[in-house]
Simulated assay, not measured.
Amino acid sequence: MATANKTQPTPDDVGAFVDRIADPVKRADSAELISVLSAATGEPPVMWGTSIIGFGARHYRYASGHEGDTALIGFSPRATALTLYLSVNFDEHASTLGRLGKHKIGKGCLYVKRLSDIDRSVLEELVTESVAAALNMNS
């Protein structure tokens, strides 16, 4: 049964949200991520909730029967790190992650303190794989 997720797309202005990021490096990194994720998805940035910038949308359904809608890919400039919400199995991408640079991972999340800590081309590779995986989930 479909239930509404807490985090939904909003009409809030993405540019205004980014402009309010106090840390100038995180603000610049967020602008760069918007460019990378827009290019990978062909979708404009949309605020999801109060702090997530998402691109595109997809419907998901778990084996448990839980289903809902979420961004195809997204990120949030959190206080401690840029959090990217990806749809890749990190175990299957261990060698790629090994080339990425300084990062941490969690369930479906890639945490990067600064974009200068990572290889941008490897990030773009992961983003492309994530978009493909998310679109495959819809098939």
Rank of each mutant, 00 (worst) to 15 (best):
M1T: 13
A2G: 08
T3Y: 11
T3V: 12
N5S: 14
T7V: 15
T10M: 10
P11R: 09
P11N: 11
D12Q: 14
D13F: 09
G15C: 10
A16F: 02
V18H: 09
V18T: 10
V18S: 10
V18N: 08
D19M: 04
D19C: 05
I21Y: 01
I21K: 10
D23K: 13
P24G: 12
P24M: 11
A28D: 11
L33D: 00
I34N: 06
V36E: 00
L37R: 06
A39G: 04
G42C: 07
E43P: 02
E43A: 15
P44Y: 01
M47V: 04
W48N: 07
T50A: 11
G54V: 06
G54S: 07
F55A: 01
G56F: 05
A57S: 15
H59R: 15
H59K: 15
Y62V: 09
E67T: 08
D69I: 12
T70W: 12
L72M: 10
I73T: 07
I73P: 01
G74H: 05
F75P: 02
F75D: 02
F75W: 06
S76R: 08
R78M: 06
L82Y: 05
L84A: 08
Y85I: 08
Y85M: 12
F90V: 01
F90R: 02
T96Q: 10
T96I: 14
T96F: 05
L100F: 06
L100G: 02
G101S: 04
G101W: 03
H103W: 03
K107L: 03
G108T: 06
G108S: 14
C109A: 12
C109T: 14
L110R: 01
L110G: 05
K113A: 09
R114K: 12
L115Y: 09
L115V: 08
S116Q: 12
D117T: 09
I118D: 00
R120F: 03
V122P: 00
L123W: 01
E124D: 05
T128P: 00
E129F: 03
E129P: 00
S130F: 06
S130D: 02
V131L: 04
V131C: 00
A132F: 02
N136D: 13
M137G: 15
M137C: 04
M137E: 14
M137V: 03
N138R: 14
N138S: 14
